[in-house]
Design a protein around this nucleic acid. Structure first.
Length: 425
RNA sequence: GGAGAGGUGGCCGAGUCGGUUGAAGGCAGCCGCCUGCUAAGCGGUUGUGGGGGUCAAACCUCACCCAGGGUUCGAAUCCCUGCCUCUCCGCCA
């Protein structure tokens, strides 16, 4: 959420910045609503002041058993007027909030301008894609041959876009999870395992609601939501808190299952593990001081990349352009891993700096030692990494001519084997 | 699921039959003074958000005693609803 006063005082900047995202901000409407709101706050405040003063007087008179009927008479009308104003104010407050809640974040200056992903800018590449002396297979064909992922039975149990991991496949999923958590915790992230169902407030704080409810699985009674990413519960750890500056920065890493409706992606990635309703992910979340957030974004991205380097998987990093930016993000790097089966790079991590956007929604503030007042922290997060897609990358990059898959060096202690072989082999 | 108890400031903990309660008292913190050092002692001070005001402060004002409604001239105090915590019983892991 943007700051109402900031918007009011910097209308042109805001309008311009949002246009870069392709977002048309109905400015005059906002200003008129917000202007009315401010006027009413003043009026209601004065009336309340009057009420406080006179009520106190009534108390004094009554204690002395004197007549207070004149004051009581006056107060009746004052009270009614306060009620009427409050009613109007509540509506305007609501409108203002809805307005602000549905406005996306302002992109950072360093974000390239552009309409869509074709304007994203590659910032670096690491590793060289393997050259195979045979036609590399898709991961679902590899997995089928090895009997480690069963999509048909998963569809029977639940439906499309679910997977049943089996044997070495299930073990590989767990090995990747442990490698990621071990790596991140050794770099100063505190491991947490949060609730994976959250309430409406939490979803609103990180920006999924009110605008993107169609992406979420919802439990009707009580009203809970399955998380689409650990970003939601982990960022909400400090919702409505005032931290001390000595507490910052705070780094968390969390493994959680994630759930997404994938509404509107019918027909996309229908086969395989790439796009599932349920998938596992290890997430990185940071709470930092405003002046540090862009440095921390670089470091967070490097921490996510580190997993791919350890696995020796080729990847590239792109800066998302303004039009491709997520709703809450001020700047995002996508990390894309090389998939021989698709002969292209695919997103495996998205690392974002949200600035104070989420913190303002979530009420996450901090206080500087020896200074008055509070400031909003900056929040960041990134996948470190999406486990299913990492598993896909391992299968496709490490596949052998005989249909087996070599286990990357770093995973062998976790797997207990160095190769997944065909049943007959 | 059944029966109780409770949710007050950074923490502990008072709030009487509704009326100088933003909230006693204590602890912690901060600033002075005092002391050879430490400890003790003395005085003062210490929340958040909104609106106005200022170059910035000072300052003025409103709101906030879990949340949301209600009663009332006036509510931390009374009533309703919700959420959460705790204890006991039952049930399941």
């Amino acid at each position: 959420m943007l700051d109402a006063r900031f918007v009011r005082e910097n209308v042109d900047t805001v309008k311009e910045a949002l246009e870069k995202r392709g977002y048309e901000f109905p400015l005059s409407e906002f200003l008129s609503i917000n202007g009315k709101r401010v006027t009413l706050i003043g009026e209601a405040g004065e009336l309340r002041n009057r009420r406080n003063v006179v009520s106190e007087e009534i108390g004094r008179l009554k204690r002395r058993k004197e007549d207070a009927s004149a004051q009581l008479e006056e107060m009746k009308t004052v009270s009614d007027r306060i009620k009427a104003l409050d009613e109007k104010l509540r509506e305007l407050e609501e409108e203002t909030k809805t307005f602000l809640m549905t406005i996306p974040n302002i992109p950072d200056e360093s974000v390239p301008e552009g309409r869509d992903e074709t304007k994203n800018i590659e910032v670096r590449r690491w590793g060289t894609p393997n050259t195979f002396d045979f036609e590399p297979l898709n991961h679902w064909d590899i997995a089928a041959a090895l009997d480690i992922i069963d999509f048909e039975r998963a569809a029977k149990i639940t439906g499309a876009r679910f997977a049943l991991m089996k044997g070495a496949g299930a073990r590989l999923e767990r090995a990747l999870m442990n490698l990621m958590l071990d790596t991140h915790t050794s770099r100063g992230y505190t491991e947490v395992f949060p609730p994976i169902m959250v309430n409406r407030e939490s979803m609103t704080a990180t920006g999924q609601l009110p605008k993107f409810g169609m992406e979420l699985f919802r439990i009707a009674d009580p009203e809970f939501y399955l998380i689409p990413t650990a970003e939601v519960p982990v960022t909400n750890i400090h919702r409505d808190e005032i931290l001390r500056d000595s507490d910052l920065p705070i780094f968390y890493t969390a493994y959680t299952p994630c759930f997404r409706r994938e509404a509107g992606s019918h027909g996309k990635d229908t086969r395989g593990l790439i796009r599932q309703h349920q998938f596992n992910k290890v997430e990185l979340v940071k709470f930092v001081k405003p002046e540090d957030s862009y440095d921390e974004l670089e470091k967070l991205t490097a921490d996510a990349e580190d997993i791919l380097r350890k696995l020796d998987l080729p990847y590239r990093v792109v800066t998302l352009c303004s039009g491709d930016l997520g709703f809450s993000s001020a700047k995002t790097y996508d990390i894309e891993v090389w998939l021989p089966g698709q002969n292209r790079y695919r997103e495996i991590s998205s690392c974002s700096n949200f600035g104070d956007f989420q913190a303002r929604r979530a009420g996450i503030r901090f206080k500087r030692e020896g200074r008055k007042g509070t400031e909003f922290v900056h929040t960041l997060n990134g996948s470190g990494l999406a486990i299913g897609r990492t598993l896909v990358a391992v299968l496709e990059n490490y596949q052998q001519k005989d249909g087996s898959v070599v286990i990357p060096e770093i995973l062998r202690p976790y797997m207990g084997i160095d190769q997944i072989r065909l049943a007959g082999g």
